[in-house]
């Protein structure tokens, strides 16, 4: 189908974009990569009065590392992230996750800000943001605020961003040198959204586990941080029994839904299987 009528604006600065959003009072939508919003418009599931296109705001696309963290502008393309040396070195989990996001011709347009603001429960970037305890910067008429991952995702396709705010930046702490990481995912075809995805980070000290991080995609309306499973590893180490116990705990921590792709029981089962796989692989590549 074709999109309904809308007014179109392509501002050059964030201030202009915010003024436009203010002018439409909640009836305008921000257009980033369009890889989720355009299908919704074509299906006429979204009918905004206006689109405010961020693609001509150069200041929103950047990757910068400083003071132990990496800042990514909201309009940074998924493909830029995939091939970024800074990301490869400091955020290898984000790089690995990116290869699971759609396909090359999707990633050329799709952005990190759009992926996070869209908050699809099966998307990879929200799981990475959650696992790495990142935060986002939102700008609105009243100024700027920083929102932690844990406070961002509310439910399906819903965040705590208000309609007159623009997500301008994603901030992720650089991963510890030698940290092990893995993103394990199951989907029917490569490039489909995850039925279940598990992001894992392990910082090891021999057989001891200094830090474990686990977060899900597809296991409920928002990404789930599997803290109680992480604690098992941090307490009991990285042996086989601890991995098994953590994977079992993971299945208890999620409350997935059934849909046409998979039943809740199957998703719960997969959560355990993929947690184990992600941990084994993360521990395998961890140094220290």
């Amino acid at each position: 189908m074709k999109p309904p009528k809308f007014e179109y604006h392509a501002p050059r600065t964030v201030d202009e974009a915010l003024a436009l959003l203010g002018r439409y009072g909640g009836d305008a939508k921000v257009l980033a990569g369009g890889q989720s919003l355009m299908p919704l418009l074509n299906f006429r599931l979204a009918r905004p009065a206006a689109l405010v296109d961020l693609n001509r705001i150069p200041s929103l696309a950047f990757i910068e590392e400083s003071g132990g963290r990496v800042r990514l502008g909201a309009m940074t393309r998924q493909r830029t992230i995939e091939f970024s040396p800074v990301v490869a070195q400091r955020l290898p989990l984000l790089k690995e996750a990116t290869r699971w996001v759609g396909h090359l011709p999707i990633r050329t347009r799709g952005t990190i800000g759009g992926s996070i603001a869209h908050a699809d429960p099966s998307a990879e970037y929200p799981a990475v943001l959650t696992a790495l305890e990142g935060e986002v910067v939102a700008r609105g008429a009243k100024g700027e605020r920083v929102i932690k991952a844990a406070d961002l995702f509310q439910t399906y396709l819903t965040t705590t961003l208000t309609p007159d705010e623009i997500l301008t930046e994603v901030r992720l702490p650089a991963m510890a040198a030698g940290a092990g990481y893995a993103l394990e995912e199951f989907s029917r075809r490569h490039g489909d959204f995850a039925i279940i995805g598990i992001a894992a980070v392990v910082v090891r000290d021999g057989q001891r586990c200094k830090t474990a991080r686990l977060a899900t995609a597809g296991a409920g309306p928002v990404p789930v941080r599997l803290r109680a499973a992480e604690e098992i590893l941090e307490r009991d180490g990285l042996g086989e029994a601890a991995i098994e116990a953590a994977a079992r705990k993971a299945t208890e921590l999620v409350d997935p839904d059934s849909d046409i792709h998979a039943s809740a029981d199957y998703r719960r089962h997969l959560t355990g299987v993929l947690t184990k796989r992600a941990l084994v692989r993360a521990i395998g590549v961890a140094r220290g």
């Binding site: 179109y8 369009g34 355009m38 299908p39 011709p105 999707i106 050329t108």
Partner: peptide, 12 residues
């Protein structure tokens, strides 16, 4: 770069 032309607007 490759892109889907059905989910881009001509004005873009």
């Amino acid at each position: 770069e490759s892109a889907r032309s059905c989910i881009m607007l001509a004005v873009q």
